[in-house]
Design a protein around this nucleic acid. Structure first.
Lengths: 125, 125
DNA sequence: GTTATATATGAACATCTGTTCATATGTACT
DNA sequence: AGTACATATGAACAGATGTTCATATATAAC
């Protein structure tokens, strides 16, 4: 947190700023949160996660479901693994991926809520 | 949806793929969801939104709270506005921004859940 | 050991993203 | 009209991101 005791500009509501700054979580939390959402912020990864909401799948299955290269899927799975959004179990040569926990489903549900509500609101496109 | 009647590779679980493909939402929904999450996937925007969870603030306030340039804040507010995550009201020259609806708070709550749970799990860093 | 299959990974490259800087818009006041 | 202030916006540029291609693992079967 950069401690700016007073900003040059003068339209500032001092008490509000002070209060909010105190309520604001730390830089690390903001970054972690952003990383999580960023991981969810790609169509390919959204499809992967949504696919895994139905059942566990191997990399090949995901390739077939989503329709992109195995390498691309694998790379994206790594991102999701790093952020603990998916886990996997090995069975011979095949790796079965599944969702790491149920947070993702709840996040998706909330997200879909917002998206569909938007669609209804603007009523077009 | 690209209709690939059969993939060349042969580790595929046909029924699973078929079932998941049918359950999978359309390309447009995936993209919309990804766009929403992508908007939440940046530390600056996370801070802006979290700040607005406390109370409505003008651009200057946000600049002071977060500690980045007014222009940067303004650009990010545009992103958030476009995705209907924030709204604003004018009072003279000052624009007061606030959260567009309560979805964001719920999304943040879920996200924080995941992040803090992760932290506890790996128990380090 | 070799070969085949399933997946992972590194490098390369084009595209996207966020900030900065300069400039424009809109509102209030004189 | 003009000036000042709050915010928006466009261009530019560095850094991040996602895919492809080639190559490397890991397991199974021979």
């Amino acid at each position: 947190m950069v401690e700016l005791d007073r900003c040059e500009i003068n339209c500032i509501h001092d008490e509000a700023v002070k209060a909010v700054r105190q309520a604001l979580f730390g830089e690390d939390v903001a970054v972690s949160l952003a990383e999580l959402f960023k991981a969810l912020g790609d169509p390919t990864r959204v499809k992967i996660l949504f696919s895994l909401m139905t059942r566990e799948l191997c990399v090949c299955d995901l390739t077939a479901v989503i329709g992109i290269s195995e390498s691309a899927v694998s790379h994206q799975l790594r991102v999701l693994r790093t952020l603990r959004l998916v886990k996997f179990r090995r069975e011979g040569k095949i790796l079965y991926y599944s969702l790491a926990d149920d947070h993702i489903e709840k996040l998706f549900a909330q997200g879909l809520d917002h998206v569909t509500e938007d669609k209804a609101e603007k009523n077009e496109e």
